[in-house]
Design a protein around this nucleic acid. Structure first.
Length: 292
DNA sequence: ACGTTTTCCTGAGCGC
DNA sequence: TGCGCTCAGGAAAACG
């Protein structure tokens, strides 16, 4: 499942393979893949055709490519959802089963393909913030910066986390508070911080909140260094290759396996229609003292 | 206004 | 063999 490190790997692939190339044509094979485009698939194709791609950017799990030439002032935004892939593929390679969008280039070289089994992801051409050299799409203004962004403000995050009336894992997954963290890296950051997912965020001390942030940053940096986390063929880089971080996970997906700190069996709990993996010994919810 | 729940989607895996 | 069920989960809309 693509979270920050996986999306960053894809962003780098786009920067390497499609920057400076001009779009010759667009095939939308599934309208749901461009549902963010309010005027529809034909509008998506028309807005891209003839534009030149700039350097790919990323915020959290969103990525985008600023457009130049006749697309000036707009960006192509993408989100991989759960199973989205952006592949740079030789035109001779047969269509993937779940190919949703194809972009062909004027140089006749490798095309860009958006492949997505579950169709939670998508592409769109959107207006960029006025005068922003990075072409940040207006529609993601509400997404917080991510912890690998030089402009992420640690002190603001720590204060906001402690001000929230919610639980700590919900807060980690709230992209308006901190972006890029999904279920896998949330569980990993909590494990490293010895915090239970249902811990009320307002009960964290300032050092605990700072440690949680540092651990989230650290685990995502480590994952990025080895190409991200892959469990199956659903997450790959633009060349179709998997990452290797899954072997280094300490909590996620390790139900019944021994905690690498204390040996206690890792537990999986149903949580918000998904799963939370945690060590029942290292990560306890502090008992709420009753009234007295 | 804010926090919580629902909704979207498809394929793998499993019990019967 | 096939059917129905559960699970995977990001983010925005809908809800309270």
């Amino acid at each position: 499942m693509p979270e920050l490190p996986e999306v960053e790997v894809v962003r780098r692939g786009l920067a390497n393979w499609v920057a400076g190339r001009t779009v010759a044509g667009v095939d939308v094979l599934h309208p749901r893949a461009v549902r963010r485009q309010s005027a529809g698939a034909a509008d998506f194709a028309a807005r891209l055709t003839g534009t030149t791609f700039g350097a790919a950017q990323r915020r959290g799990k969103y990525l985008w490519v600023p457009l130049a030439g006749r697309g000036q002032g707009f960006s192509m935004i993408g989100h991989l959802g759960m199973s989205g892939q952006l592949l740079v593929q030789d035109p001779a390679v047969p269509d993937e089963k779940h190919l949703r969008v194809r972009l062909r280039f004027t140089d006749g070289g490798r095309e860009l393909r958006f492949v997505d089994q579950r169709t939670f992801g998508g592409l769109a051409v959107e207006e960029a913030e006025d005068g922003d050299p990075e072409g940040t799409p207006v529609s993601i203004a509400h997404i917080a910066r991510d912890p690998l962004d030089a402009r992420f403000d640690d002190a603001v995050f720590v204060a906001a986390l402690r001000a929230r009336r919610t639980t700590v894992k919900r807060a980690l997954l709230d992209q308006t508070l901190i972006s890029g963290v999904g279920n896998i890296y949330a569980d990993e950051a909590l494990w490293r911080s010895r915090l239970h997912y249902d811990r009320p965020s307002a009960t964290l001390t300032r050092p605990q909140a700072a440690l949680l942030l540092a651990n989230a940053r650290e685990v995502m940096t480590a994952a990025l260094a080895v190409g991200g986390t892959s469990f199956d063929s659903l997450y790959v880089n633009v060349n179709g290759e998997s990452g290797y971080f899954s072997r280094d996970l300490d909590a996620y997906g390790r139900e019944d396996e021994p905690c690498r700190r204390c040996g206690t069996a890792i537990r999986r709990a149903a949580w918000m229609n998904r799963s939370s993996y945690f060590c029942p010994r290292c990560q306890r919810v502090p008992r709420v003292r009753d009234g007295g």
